[in-house]
Amino acid sequence: MTGRIHKFGDDINTDYIISGKYKFKTLDMQELAKHVMEDIDPGFASRVQPGDFIAAGKNFGCGSSREQAPRALLACGIRGILAKSFARIFFRNAINCGLFVVECDTDRFETGDEVTVDLGEGRVINHTRGFELSVAPLPQVMIDILKEGGLVNYFKKYGSFERV
């Protein structure tokens, strides 16, 4: 997967990703997608090209358990998140929705960088700045879920976690 980076700082919480005032109103993710990151980066949603990535600091996705956060990010075109660390519930939710998450040092990434992520090989390549990072693999169950495009498809296929 190759895409362009949108850079954010530390502790981006789920209220920032999609505010509670929108998420309670609708299950329409296209509608929510318009408001992604609105409170900290107005106009973000309109700048995203399908397939783009976010590179953030530590503790991305802290706060509420709202699965609307990764779903709205996906709906607005974001394919995956690179961050120094993730909050636990967001990390699971992202994988469950088919949004990939990579833990790595994001200091040298800037908005606009062209980046390739190879989850199978555990590599992130920044073409714009010419460097490569190797990243730790995810637990197998998460790789399997991601491979199916999310937990819904995983369950449709396997019907249980008994493979774990």
Partner: peptide, 26 residues
């Protein structure tokens, strides 16, 4: 619980934690 503050019930010695909506469905 599909709410991040599900961790509250540890006050009485339960292991409780927040999950997402699709996990709740599962």
């Amino acid at each position: 619980g599909a709410d991040s503050h599900t961790c509250t019930y540890g006050a009485i010695g339960a292991f409780s934690t927040g999950i997402g909506s699709t996990e709740l469905a599962v």
